[in-house]
Design a binder for these strands. Sequence first.
DNA 1: CGGGTGATTGAGCCCGCTCAACTCTCGTGG
DNA 2: CCACGAGAGTTGAGCGGGCTCAATCACCCG
Lengths: 228, 228
Amino acid sequence: MSLVAATPTSVRPNTQPFRPAGNPSEMFAGCPELVGTPFNYARETEIYGEGETAEFVYRIVSGAVRTCKILADGRRQINAFHLAGDLFGFEPGEAHRLTAEAIADTKVLLFSRRSVQDLANRNVEAARRLWNSTLQNLEDAEDHMLLLGRRTALERVAAFLLTIEKRLGGNRCVELPMSRRDMADYLGLTIETVSRSMTQLQSKRAIALSGARHLVLDARLINKCLDD
Amino acid sequence: MSLVAATPTSVRPNTQPFRPAGNPSEMFAGCPELVGTPFNYARETEIYGEGETAEFVYRIVSGAVRTCKILADGRRQINAFHLAGDLFGFEPGEAHRLTAEAIADTKVLLFSRRSVQDLANRNVEAARRLWNSTLQNLEDAEDHMLLLGRRTALERVAAFLLTIEKRLGGNRCVELPMSRRDMADYLGLTIETVSRSMTQLQSKRAIALSGARHLVLDARLINKCLDD
DNA sequence: CGGGTGATTGAGCCCGCTCAACTCTCGTGG
DNA sequence: CCACGAGAGTTGAGCGGGCTCAATCACCCG
């Protein structure tokens, strides 16, 4: 679910280690009856809201999605970003526990929750893949709890950049799909602190920014920045 | 996995809402071949370490367990507390991603990871229960990320006390199984801040402490404390 | 060229951390 | 019975990292 997840797409070489049975792009392989309905969401529109009945499971074809929780006073915590190839929208109960919104214009494939459940009940292999996918999400959540509970602002931003670079192909070049506000709400910081941390990394030559969204990073120098 | 999970035991009435198929105490019902081997862990001993090969899945009979991650410099984040009835030790890969330690003297039932996997491959119903159990853990992790990323110290301690009271039977009376250090490392705070928050709640009559581990709480007054 | 949005930078403050002293409890032994 | 020590918890004083509030800058689109 979150940044650590493998996100192979058809247009990008998969530089991730092989994930047995947890690979979203193979999730419904050999299940021709589960083809998925294409659908589009515009930038900054809600896909589903917290508390709504969970009707669909989603697989991203292109674009990016955030899932988050929002407190009554407006404080927001983004739990995960989902990129092309990722699956999201599973729920243990009938209702969605998170809100999902498109960060950019996003194409998805819809699968009815019921049909996915039915498939899992019939097909042991599919059930195992769904389970492993959920376990992968849990693992990512565990890493994120460590980040939110015990890491400094600079460590959070550095870890975020390293992880998303890996997800986007690992060629040191990153086109951030999300705003500073989204990064801040994912990392448990304010936009100002995110910005200052980025500036700090840039002044140490660990990253090079060209525009707010495009950057080139040096993993070795980023890690060196954390040692002082 | 964490504090929101239902934890019915045979000696305590279940005051939780019914959780279809996710109930740990029924997890292996109807599977007499999966009986589990009793085992004991003394207080403050390691059950398994991060990175070790995952051989077993554990179900707690009595006692309490924490699972955590530790950084090289000693910073620790506890992901979850497990009480009687809880299942823990699932892993998506071959290796444990967390360290598990007994908080108190703890009796568990061991199930070999392989036999659990085999059961899930044969028995669709068991697979569904395991999947739902993992989804429940993920849901708890999502709640905890909001707490760690966006809540104040007082809110964290208040939420923790309310949740653990519910898990321990919901009769307003709590015998904390863990130390202040464990609470702090779960809530992303220091022991001093946890202590000060408890004192603050006590001065508002929202909780009554008798000894560090025993307390009676008033849910309404706790929520009122958060409004100023 | 403006207007609008998002990002950066600056100044000052505050919540939670650090460091340290003190208290409480409990177990052990004279 | 008290003395003592060890470990856990509480309290206090002061600091500092990240937040708040505000101004400025950069980049789009018209």
